[in-house]
Design a binder for these strands. Structure first.
Length: 466
RNA sequence: GGCGGAGUAGCCAAGUGGUAAGGCAAUGGUUUGCAAAACCGUCAUUCGAGGGUUCGAUUCCCUCCUCCGCCUCCA
């Protein structure tokens, strides 16, 4: 498996440092509302990476945090009149439900920030002891950027640009003047009145942890000083991941992440998604429009992770047709394969190209194309060859996390008596070659959501596509 | 201003120094009373614009145009 690394800006082979398990960390959601499809693009691609590694025979250890304390969670919990714990628990539950619908494998470990405050305090103290951090008069603690020479390597910002940033950015929060340098970032935020009940004791006074430090402490706890890969959306490159590197390398002394995997933002209708434009979709929003989570997943993996993805409702409709076509192809292949075949072919057969795309910098759209092409080739196969091809197809589908829709089971659909009566009337009219009435009745059925298909000697009724 | 990314058919979207995957939509045919479904086909001499390198460039280089992201707590 080859993957582009943000830090070195090269494609590199992914191999577990410890030779057995590929250990990686993903920045998880801040649970103050429902996650939207932009968030899920990142999580879905991370899921495909994990599934691909596992399909390729590599064991994984997947850690993804829940950010359950920050300005937004505190602010919105107060608005909702709930405790922070209560508030974030609700949204965490919602997030998990969405993840399951999208077919995301649950991380092996999912730490929350609040329950790791002791570890965070220890790390901050270490940074102070080593001279990489300092407490200000108000009880906040800041990281001293000038103490870490590697600062800016990930985001390719040098000192001059960091200085430029501070002159261009004049927004001043209440505690900013406490810093030695405007570029220094906060590790521990002193308690403020608007925090309400949300503060914790520390050697520097009551307060709460800074966002960047939460991740560093949880990584240290579960993955140690050095691990295989760190991932998130491109917006996290600076400052979040840059700051994590500084904190962790200074406090722990290890190499931190060996590989950086960043997923590009998606666009909606060609532009940035925003609430005010009404194009910020959640899984629930799309379900209300009749789209399934698997259709959403298909669209999200339909573009390469390093390119912008233009999300549209039309592309979701296209995904439905494409998934149906895939499902049909898979069924036809299954029908022709040898049911007694115990062939456990390790290969991918006609789907080798699809798999190769996936292992080549996680080219998911290339893999989807390879599946359709493979299906065409596989249609010539029968018996054990078809079985082997089917096994290869299923392997690629599993790596992509795609679950294909079942064939519509018409027998299981309840048809209301009134609809059945209407259909029977129409069938008689049709047999009598009364085309006008026949067409009128068919239109009536359609209005009520039923599609009547005429066969030679009989007809079928099925719910019209939504 | 700095850093980074993108411009490929109506739409979504791969890819490559050697002549453009795939999906959706559209469309022709078979079938059907007409449809639907199904099946068989068609669908970019061309890859934002202009130069350059090359036997050959969409792919490398230069210039320009357009769009997008980040520049201190947004996936």
């Amino acid at each position: 498996m080859r993957l582009f690394d943000t830090l070195s800006r090269t494609e590199r082979e992914l191999r577990p440092i410890d030779g057995t398990t590929f250990r990686f960390y993903c920045c998880g959601p801040t649970v103050y509302g429902p996650a939207h499809i932009g968030n899920f693009r990142t999580f879905v691609l991370q899921d495909v990476l994990r599934r691909s590694l596992e399909t390729g025979g590599t064991r994984t250890l997947h850690v993804r945090n829940i950010t359950d304390v920050d300005d937004k969670t505190i602010r919105d919990s107060q608005k909702a009149g709930q405790s922070l714990t209560e508030f974030t628990a609700g949204w965490t539950e919602k997030f998990h439900a969405d993840c399951e619908k999208l077919g995301l494998l649950p991380p092996h470990i999912e730490p929350g920030a609040v329950e790791h405050i002791p570890q965070q305090i220890v790390m901050i103290q270490t940074l102070i002891d080593k001279g990489n951090a300092y407490a200000s008069d108000d009880g906040s603690v800041y990281f001293k950027i000038s103490s870490f020479l590697g600062y800016g390597r990930l985001s390719h910002l040098d000192q001059r640009e960091l200085d430029l940033g501070k002159t261009q950015n004049t927004r001043a929060s209440s505690d900013e003047y406490e810093k030695d340098s405007l570029s220094d970032f906060v590790l521990w935020k002193a308690r403020r009145p608007e925090d309400g009940e949300n503060f914790w004791p520390s050697p520097w006074g009551e307060g709460r942890p800074g966002w960047h430090l939460e991740c560093s402490a949880m990584i240290q706890e579960y993955l140690g000083d050095s691990f295989d890969l760190h991932s998130g959306g491109v917006d996290l490159i600076f400052p979040h991941h840059e700051n994590e590197i500084a904190q962790s390398q200074c406090a722990c002394g290890g190499h931190f992440a060996a590989h950086w995997f960043h997923i590009t933002h998606l666009l909606v209708d060609g532009g940035k998604m925003s609430k005010s434009l009404g194009n910020l979709y959640t899984i629930e929003d799309l379900a209300a429009k009749g789209f399934t989570p698997m259709e959403v997943r298909y669209v999200l993996i339909g573009a390469h992770y390093r390119k912008p993805l233009n999300f549209t409702l039309d592309s979701l409709s296209g995904a439905r047709e494409a998934l149906a076509k895939l499902a049909k192809g898979a069924r036809q292949l299954a029908a022709k394969s040898d049911p007694d075949s115990r062939l456990t072919s390790a290969g991918f057969g006609p789907f080798q190209a699809a798999w190769d795309s996936l292992t080549n910098d996680l080219n998911t759209p290339g893999a989807l194309g390879g599946i359709f092409t493979g299906l065409r080739e596989a249609s010539q196969l029968t018996g054990t060859e078809a079985s082997a091809a089917l096994a290869g197809l299923n392997r690629v589908l599993r790596a992509l996390g795609l679950t294909l829709p079942e064939a519509a089971d018409l027998d299981s659909v309840e048809i209301p008596a009134a609809i059945q009566a209407l259909a029977a009337t129409r069938w008689q009219a049709r047999l009598a070659k009364n085309w006008a009435e026949s067409d009128t009745l068919r239109a009536q059925l359609a209005e009520q959501g039923w599609l009547m298909k005429d066969g030679k000697d009989s007809y079928t009724l099925e719910p019209a596509a939504s």
